[in-house]
């Protein structure tokens, strides 16, 4: 196996996903066959080839530092599952 159950659980924890035991095994098998397929890349000679992260060359894109209207607060809160007094409410974080 290219990926252990502990590594599956670690990735799930980092990604904020909760997995049942059966799921851990299922994802381990599926991820394993995908990672095994990806092994073909290790055979490609890449030396000091520049990694590509954008499909064409743009550097920083600046705009004038002028305030423009974006969403107002009431509108931004329309989709929040829970809000009160103009702010989003979440379960208590600090005891």
């Amino acid at each position: 196996m290219k990926i252990t159950q502990d590594e599956v659980l670690h990735a799930a924890r980092l990604a904020r996903l909760k997995l049942g035991l059966a799921e851990v095994e299922k994802f381990q098998n599926e991820l394993d066959s995908i990672l095994e397929y990806m092994d073909m890349l290790s055979k490609v000679e890449t030396g000091d080839i520049e990694p590509m992260s954008r499909s064409f060359h743009v550097t920083n894109v600046f705009r004038e530092d002028e305030a423009v209207r974006s969403q107002d607060r009431a509108e931004a809160l329309l989709n929040a599952p829970c809000h009160k007094d103009g702010v989003v409410v979440v379960p208590k974080v600090i005891e």
């Binding site: 904020r16 909760k18 931004a76 929040a80 599952p81 989003v88 979440v90 379960p91 208590k92 974080v93």
Partner: peptide, 21 residues
């Protein structure tokens, strides 16, 4: 937090993320 579904039974913030996702 900001949009979409939220699991409302969660006991704390981490649990809310885990259950919702």
């Amino acid at each position: 937090v900001r949009y979409g579904a939220r699991d409302t039974d969660a006991k704390d913030l981490l649990d809310m993320y885990l259950e919702t996702r």
